[in-house]
Design a protein around this nucleic acid. Structure first.
Length: 278
DNA sequence: ACACTATGCTTAG
DNA sequence: TAAGCCTAGTGTG
C-alpha cells in the first residue's frame, strides 16, 4: 500500500490517536529499541515523501520509519491484543488518557532512532513532496529538464520528486497523455506544471480516501458502461496492473514493460511515443 | 502445501 | 543487474 499518500494519512491517524498521550512502546519481534520510548509522551507523526517520523517528548531522537514494499502500520482500538506475526514496533495508549489504542508495525524496511542531524541529512536528499504545502516543483523541473532519463523513471526517483510510487507515476502519465519513455528534457514546462498540479490533487484525494483513485468522472464505470467494481488495489485506476486489458478510454490493450527494474504500464494509443516534443 | 507477486529501496558486484 | 529484506495476498495443486 505505501506510496506517499499512505504515509501522510498514517501520520494524521497516528497523531490523532496518540498526540500528547503517554505510551507503552515495545518490540515484540525484538528488532527495534522500543524501550527508549516506553513511558514517554507521543508528540506527533509527520511524513516526508515515503518517510515517516515520530517525535516523542524527552527523547531528542526521532523514530524513522520506511515501509518499503510491504511494510504496514495497523491501528486497532483497545490494548492487550495477541501479537500476530512479526511485530517490529507496538505502541499503545491506555484508557487513562483517552480511548485505548494499539498501533502495530510489521515488515518495515526501516524502523530506527535518528538524531535531528541525521534526519536533516535524509530530508536534504528528498525531492519536493506534492503533499507538502512548502514543496517547490521548480527544483524537480531543474532535474527533469536536464535529464535524458525517461520521465517514468525520473518520477520514481525520490531525489527528484518524493512520495510518488509506481501507481501514481503510471496514472499521472496516462492522465496527461505522455509517453512514459519520453526523455525528461523533451518534456515541456507546461507538461511538468500539469503533472505536478495533478499529483498534488491526486495524492490529496489519496490521503482523504486512503486509497488511490485516478479515474475522471467521465470515464467512471457508470459513464462508460462497464461494471462498477474497485480493482484489487483498493481504488479505480486507468492502467496500473491492467496489462492486456482494454484501456478505459480507447479500448486499446494496456502495455507493460519492465523499466529500471519496475513494472511500467501505459496505453500505447493514449500515450503515443511518436509525439513531437515541444 | 507451495509458488509467486507486490504501490520500495539499498547494497554488492 | 541482481540479491536481499521478510509481510500478506493470491493462485495452484
Amino acid at each position: 500500500m505505501p506510496e506517499g499518500h499512505t504515509l501522510h494519512r498514517l501520520a494524521l491517524d497516528l497523531t490523532a490517536a496518540f498526540a500528547g498521550r503517554r505510551l507503552t512502546s515495545t518490540s515484540p519481534q525484538g528488532r527495534f529499541l522500543a524501550s527508549r520510548l516506553d513511558g514517554r509522551r507521543f508528540e506527533r507523526a509527520e511524513a516526508w515523501g515515503k518517510h515517516l517520523f515520530v517525535t516523542v517528548a524527552d527523547q531528542p531522537r526521532l523514530v524513522h520509519v520506511h515501509l518499503g514494499l510491504y511494510g504496514g502500520f495497523r491501528l486497532m482500538p483497545g490494548t492487550g491484543h495477541a501479537v500476530v506475526g512479526q511485530v517490529r514496533w507496538r505502541l499503545t495508549a491506555s484508557a487513562r488518557s483517552g480511548r485505548p489504542v494499539t498501533a502495530d508495525l510489521r515488515g518495515p524496511n526501516v524502523c530506527e532512532l535518528l538524531g535531528p542531524g541525521e534526519v536533516d541529512t535524509l530530508l536534504a536528499r528528498l525531492g519536493p513532496d506534492p503533499l507538502r504545502p512548502d514543496a517547490d516543483p521548480e527544483a524537480a523541473w531543474t532535474r527533469i529538464s536536464r535529464s535524458r532519463t525517461p520521465i517514468a523513471v525520473l518520477l520514481l526517483d525520490q531525489t527528484v520528486v518524493s512520495g510518488v510510487g509506481n501507481v501514481y507515476r503510471a496514472e499521472v502519465l496516462f492522465r496527461h497523455g505522455i509517453d512514459p519513455l519520453l526523455p525528461g528534457h523533451e518534456l515541456t514546462r507546461e507538461q511538468w506544471t500539469a503533472i505536478w498540479s495533478d499529483l498534488v490533487h491526486l495524492m490529496q484525494v489519496g490521503v482523504e480516501r486512503n486509497r488511490i483513485d485516478t479515474v475522471r468522472p467521465e470515464h467512471e464505470p457508470e459513464a462508460m458502461g462497464r461494471p462498477a467494481r474497485a480493482d484489487d488495489h483498493g481504488g479505480e485506476v486507468y492502467v496500473y496492473r491492467r496489462a492486456g486489458a482494454p484501456c478505459h478510454v480507447c479500448g486499446t490493450p494496456v502495455a507493460t514493460q519492465v523499466v529500471a527494474a519496475r513494472n511500467l504500464f501505459w496505453c500505447p494509443a493514449c500515450q503515443p511515443a511518436d509525439r513531437v516534443a515541444g
